[in-house]
Design a protein around this nucleic acid. Structure first.
Lengths: 198, 198
DNA sequence: TTGTGGTTTTGCATGTTGTGCAAATTTGCT
DNA sequence: AGCAAATTTGCACAACATGCAAAACCACAA
């Protein structure tokens, strides 16, 4: 029962159910608006019982948000903390954040749907923002360790806040573009502006 | 019926009721936790009917958050857009944001209570963050107008994002302090670090 | 004081969200 | 087939949130 890439039927079904619930939720909310969609309708479309919805998501809103961005993994963190890869703080910060941005990224279509959601239902903005709060905290700790400062001090927190803001901006802008380049390019753009202005 | 400082009984009662609801909500949530307080209990403490609660606040959470920070007023915006007061972008941005931070500030005790709330109930973080989202958007437009750039471009958005991040950090740090100086000092500290690092 | 008009509070009915629990169903494995 | 474990489902129930109309209340003037 190792970890071979073959997932059992059980696992596959769970993933399929989660995905179906998420997709139908997004679709219906885009079609009708957040307040004109009930969990009952979602589960009817996904062909499960209403109760099952809450086995997967704690609320309607959570089903819309997903998990992006996620905090960078341990390897990237080690590299950043020990002064790599370039030695220049801001560049390395960009690298550190790019890393995770690549991996955790859902499909481009999903991102675009979520972007439409945000335009259409601004009430959801805070929820999306809260994801970045977690990233920011992780970055603050990493920065503190790298520059040998306490995590509670201004500098780590500020650097993390600015980095997270740049990342958020890059993602938002990228999702808004009609097509264009990769997320990395958007991140370059954000950090480039950062260097110009400050 | 001008705007003399004498408020009629009606107005005073409304203000008192709003305040009572807010205070009791905060107090009870700090005492017992967000999920162990019902609207019914809050209204019992405030001595109004449950239905009245929703005449004042759309949800339990909104009663906790208040209105700080708010977007700077038109005067401050004019000054900033027209290149004042110093002519240096970052310094003026600081000034612009300080302005509103002063006015809108509730009492220090209230802010401290809200800080405890955030530590105790992280679920509320998104709601607090959403206030900053509005400020950030306003700043982005002001910056765009000042530097003669389209609001949709990178630079205004980035500058606004960074400014909002610095403001948020200042408020958070200030609320966390046991006593110390004014909010303006905290803002100086944030922007000072910003100048050092970038 | 009393009456009149407008505002606020309240009670009631209703739909939706979200959770706990136990029974039924499904899956994995021998 | 048959057992053990995980998942889904139905049911009961508390709380949230809104619309509506009746009741209570305040302001103001005769």
């Amino acid at each position: 029962m190792g970890e071979g890439r073959e997932l059992g039927l059980r696992e596959r079904k769970k993933i399929a159910t989660r995905r179906a619930l998420q997709q139908h939720t997004i679709r219906l909310v885009i079609e009708r608006g957040l307040d004109n969609v009930t969990v009952e309708e979602i589960t009817a479309a996904a062909e499960v019982s209403p109760r099952t919805f809450f086995n997967y998501f704690p609320s309607k809103e959570e089903a819309l948000v997903g998990h992006h961005p996620s905090v960078p993994d341990e390897d990237a963190r080690q590299l950043f903390v020990s002064g790599g890869p370039t030695g220049k703080l801001v560049d390395d910060l960009k690298h550190y954040l790019s890393q995770q941005a690549e991996e955790g990224t859902p499909s481009p279509e999903d991102l675009r749907l979520r972007h439409r959601l945000l335009e259409q239902e601004p009430q959801l903005t805070p929820l999306f923002l809260s994801r970045f709060a977690k990233v920011e905290q992780a970055v603050a700790e990493a920065v503190a360790e790298r520059i040998g400062d306490a995590p509670g001090n201004v500098r780590p927190q500020l650097i993390a806040a600015v980095g997270a803001a740049a990342l958020r901006l890059a993602i938002r802008r990228w999702k808004g573009e009609d097509s264009a380049g990769s997320l990395s390019d958007a991140i370059d753009e954000s950090f480039g502006a950062l260097n110009e202005v400050f």
